[in-house]
Amino acid sequence: MAACALFGIRENNARVALVRLSATGMIEGTGRGAYRIGPSSSDLAEEVRAWRAAESRVRKWNGAWLVVHSAALLRSDRAAWRRCDRALRMLGFRELEKDLFVRPDNLVGGVKSVRARLRKLGLAAEAPVFTADDLDEELDARARALWTSDALTESYARTRRELERWLQRMRTLEPEVAARESFLLGSDAIRQLVFDPLLPDPLVDVSERRAFVDVVKRFDEAGHAIWRTVLGASAKEVP
């Protein structure tokens, strides 16, 4: 409740949201006023938490592609398709042809690992996941152009500079303001990283991405320290 108050969220609204999340299994109670991730969101939460190890998940690219064929999936089943679409986006896939999604085969563990991760995130079993290493020049060029490399690289630099500027001035902020801003900025940066395609050279500037990841980690540590202080102070105020 103390955290919600910093964002202008009323206590009743927060309690209603908690009840709804509990009903869907996304969270579950562990005691009075205490919750943890529930069974229906544990796989997604595990994938999101892995953002800190993003760079350890990539390997040198040999030019091959990971491919998902989704023609057997019914897009009319909106809930199922949303899960599949999210799974594909989280692992960096883009649509090359109708129902044919690709990404560079540069993730550690190769197709077997990626297939398992996609399934856990919601990709239906009817969608085959495989590798392709003999695309013709025209199709390979189209696949490489699915990502705007310069824009992606610039997004790393832009977010990194924004976070660095905030870290330089955070000590001048009131604790509650620092907590609120660190949450909002940090959430956006982590989301950017969670949905980053983790492309290899030469499709993106890998050194710029690594610098971005390093700053997000420092920002996350600073944000956690701020929130521990603010929530600790709020707890002491409760009679």
Score class of each variant (00 low, 15 high):
2 A>G: 00
3 A>P: 02
6 L>R: 07
7 F>P: 03
9 I>V: 13
10 R>I: 11
10 R>C: 08
13 N>K: 13
15 R>D: 09
18 L>P: 04
19 V>F: 14
19 V>D: 12
27 I>F: 05
27 I>Q: 02
29 G>E: 08
31 G>T: 03
31 G>P: 03
33 G>A: 01
35 Y>R: 04
41 S>G: 05
43 D>C: 01
44 L>N: 04
47 E>C: 06
49 R>P: 01
49 R>I: 01
50 A>W: 04
52 R>H: 12
53 A>E: 08
58 V>R: 03
59 R>V: 13
59 R>T: 15
62 N>W: 10
63 G>L: 05
64 A>K: 07
68 V>A: 06
69 H>T: 12
75 R>S: 06
81 W>F: 02
82 R>M: 09
93 F>N: 01
97 E>F: 14
97 E>T: 10
99 D>R: 11
101 F>S: 00
103 R>Y: 13
110 G>W: 08
110 G>K: 08
111 V>A: 09
113 S>I: 07
114 V>I: 14
114 V>E: 08
114 V>N: 00
115 R>I: 04
116 A>N: 05
118 L>S: 01
119 R>C: 02
121 L>H: 05
121 L>M: 03
121 L>S: 04
122 G>Y: 01
122 G>H: 02
123 L>G: 00
125 A>V: 07
132 A>V: 12
133 D>G: 15
133 D>T: 09
137 E>H: 09
141 A>M: 11
145 A>V: 10
146 L>G: 01
148 T>D: 15
149 S>E: 13
150 D>I: 07
150 D>L: 09
152 L>T: 11
153 T>E: 07
154 E>H: 14
157 A>P: 03
158 R>N: 09
160 R>P: 00
161 R>V: 04
162 E>T: 14
164 E>Q: 11
168 Q>M: 14
170 M>E: 15
171 R>L: 11
172 T>W: 14
173 L>E: 15
175 P>W: 07
182 S>D: 06
183 F>R: 07
184 L>F: 11
187 S>T: 15
189 A>D: 01
189 A>M: 04
196 D>N: 15
197 P>M: 11
198 L>H: 03
198 L>D: 09
201 D>I: 08
207 S>F: 05
207 S>V: 13
210 R>M: 05
217 K>H: 07
218 R>P: 00
219 F>T: 00
221 E>H: 00
221 E>A: 00
222 A>W: 04
223 G>M: 01
223 G>P: 02
225 A>V: 05
226 I>A: 01
226 I>Y: 06
230 V>R: 08
232 G>D: 10
236 K>A: 15
237 E>T: 10
239 P>G: 10
239 P>A: 08
